[in-house]
Simulated scan of single mutants.
Amino acid sequence: MTEINISDLFQAAIRVKRSEITAEIYSWSRGMVQSGPFRGMRILQASSWGDGDLCPKILGTYESELHSCLNLWIKTPPDSVINIGCAEGYYAVGLARLFDRAIIKAFDISPAARDLCQRNATLNRVQDRIIVEGLCSPDILDGALRGSLRPAVVCDCEGGELELLDPVRAPGLSRCNILVECHDFVNRSISETLVARFQESHVIDVIPEGPRDPNRFTPLRRMRSMDRWLALCEFRPESMNWLFMRPRNVAPTEVADKKTGQLHQDSIQEEPSGIL
């Protein structure tokens, strides 16, 4: 008799239910992001990995901890953005819409991801400003930064950030705005190492993963409690954080409050706060 793994059954049930919720929310929204800095962006009902967190992306709660960082960039928009680990193009396309004069260079090792990124770019009519490529290395990254007066990097590459974000191998990073998701569960030294590399050249804020409020959205309020939370879940393996790093030679006027995620006037932090 085959032994039943309760955990596997539970995970399978979650995937089925999440798929049902996503389909309902996608239909309700007509595939359009409902809130946050990417509000109004359209997203195809497809993903290159898992379910692509399509439901929280459509609702606009996906990585909402970073919204204040993007809003700060609006004050002095980058003229180019390097998006490493672009997946289906949520950030690549969203940032192309947000910064309407910026060139976006999007990298992903997955052919399926690159295809979806290009299709979402076309859907949002920003395909002329998005360049989609495969593997990114420190040398390629440094080359992509050349010629840009106000470059920015948005990085989510499953632990690869430790190799890629090295100002010795990619000197252009020293004058670059950087927003990186740290995968410390892959390597416990990632956040600490990146802070050490950039603390002299950048002001660094550590942004911890925060809560979500499903009751903001009318269709979720009609769902059972478990389903409401499942709609917004990003299925992270542990509580995670991002580093928001701004070059010191560009004087910042605001910083993000770690608890509320809201921007406020403040002095420059010399040392990062949060987990370190």
Results as ranks from 00 to 15, higher is better:
159 G>A: 08
44 L>G: 13
197 R>Y: 12
38 F>P: 02
19 S>N: 13
273 S>I: 05
163 E>C: 07
62 Y>M: 07
240 M>H: 05
119 R>D: 14
155 C>V: 06
214 P>T: 06
64 S>A: 06
82 I>Y: 11
23 A>F: 00
210 G>Y: 05
235 F>S: 07
246 R>C: 00
178 I>S: 05
71 N>V: 02
15 R>W: 00
74 I>P: 00
112 A>P: 00
31 G>C: 05
3 E>D: 12
110 S>E: 02
55 C>W: 05
272 P>F: 04
223 M>F: 13
221 R>I: 07
209 E>T: 01
155 C>Y: 06
160 G>Q: 09
125 R>L: 13
86 C>N: 08
222 R>V: 06
75 K>D: 06
129 R>A: 09
202 H>S: 04
18 R>I: 00
103 I>Q: 15
74 I>R: 15
192 E>C: 06
89 G>L: 03
104 I>Q: 10
179 L>M: 08
148 S>A: 15
39 R>A: 08
40 G>V: 03
87 A>R: 06
274 G>L: 13
254 E>S: 08
33 V>D: 03
158 E>D: 15
93 V>K: 10
190 I>N: 07
188 R>T: 11
91 Y>A: 05
148 S>T: 14
267 S>I: 04
102 A>W: 11
104 I>N: 05
265 Q>I: 10
150 R>A: 10
26 Y>S: 02
145 L>W: 12
250 V>S: 03
196 A>N: 10
